[in-house]
């Protein structure tokens, strides 16, 4: 079954800005799905329409086969939303924010309290349950948004840049948690600017740019399209000019680091052999940028050129 089906979705704002030009894509039940795109691409508009915070101009949306035009309330029962901006009452206590949200989905107070304890403990917020939300740090507020979205145990969790501004340790904790709930069966849709996040978490990726779908495929197929990767090599000797390599183009970043472009059909063994022949020893190796990031830049830049 499809968790989400979007067909020919269009959005034109009152000021004339055309945010979505008739996009279509679907998300399978149980998937961990990334919706990527540069700022202003239409990601948040898409999520806003799916969660009914933004009115669509045209198109059809189905959540677990419930058409949002005909079965709006049934469709909404299945969605949990983590919006980009903090949007809870700053005067309410943490426990009240969570239990009230459960109530809006029809979860009785007693059940809500049990679930709240589980999720607040899980995300390290239990000790803060009687604190006003205004007193929480940015990271704790992000976690509270996730607990609030999960309290009615939705089948589809939509996260709009959930780790923006979150330190790396907390980000990894959140990744582990999201993977855990996905493995338990919750479909997860994630928008993020951290492409490393999308690459490590998501199997399916849709890239949206200027209101159009640029790519809609699984991660492996997408990364196979990547023609060239740039590697940074750390050297054990200092160099003043870049070595001349027969089959690779390279530039010297500083006296101990070399950037080398490796095409898909070329191997790293061959590269090491050529460097070895010139007496250069490599002490470490890393990607210049993450692979998905390179792909993303390629695709979004091509999309701009075509326009």
């Amino acid at each position: 079954m499809k968790a989400l089906e979007i067909n020919n979705l269009k959005k034109t704002y009152a000021n004339g800005v055309q945010a979505l030009n008739g996009i279509s894509f679907s998300v399978e039940e149980g998937a961990f799905f990334a919706l990527l795109g540069p700022n202003g691409a239409g990601k948040s508009t898409t999520i806003g329409i799916v969660s009914t915070l933004v009115n669509k101009t045209a198109g059809q949306i189905k959540i677990f086969d419930h058409d949002m035009s005909d079965d709006l309330l049934l469709a909404k029962r299945n969605i949990g939303l983590v919006p980009q901006e903090f949007n809870f009452s700053t005067f309410d206590k943490v426990i009240d924010v969570v239990c009230n949200q459960a109530g809006y989905y029809g979860v009785p107070r007693k059940v809500a309290k049990v679930r709240a304890e589980y999720y607040l403990k899980k995300l390290g917020l239990w000790e803060k349950r009687n604190h006003q939300t205004v007193a929480l740090s940015g990271g704790l507020k992000r976690r509270l948004m996730i607990v609030r979205a999960l309290i009615h145990e939705p089948k589809l969790l939509i996260l709009d840049e959930p780790t923006a501004g979150v330190d790396i340790e907390l980000r990894r904790t959140m990744w582990d948690f999201l993977q855990e709930i996905n493995q338990k069966g919750t479909t997860v849709i994630l928008t993020t600017h951290y492409l490393e996040e999308a690459e490590s978490l998501c199997e399916n990726i849709t890239i949206i740019d200027q209101g159009n779908i640029v790519v809609n495929t699984d991660k492996k197929s997408l990364l196979r399209q990547l023609n060239t990767e740039t590697f940074i090599l750390d050297l054990d000797v200092s160099m003043t000019v870049a070595p001349i390599l027969e089959k690779y183009s390279c530039t010297l970043i500083d006296e101990h680091s070399l950037a080398v472009n490796v095409k898909r059909e070329q191997s790293l063994n061959q590269l090491f052999a050529e460097l070895g022949q010139q007496g250069i020893t490599i002490t470490s190796l890393r990607n210049k940028s993450n692979r998905l990031e390179e792909m993303f830049l390629d695709l979004t830049q091509n999309s701009k050129k075509e326009q």
């Binding site: 969660s51 009914t52 915070l53 709006l72 309330l73 049934l74 909404k76 029962r77 969605i79 939303l81 919006p83 949007n87 809870f88 009230n100 949200q101 809006y104 989905y105 029809g106 609030r148």
Partner: peptide
Amino acid sequence: EELLVAPI
């Protein structure tokens, strides 16, 4: 928005 996204 807590109310607007809810199925009510």
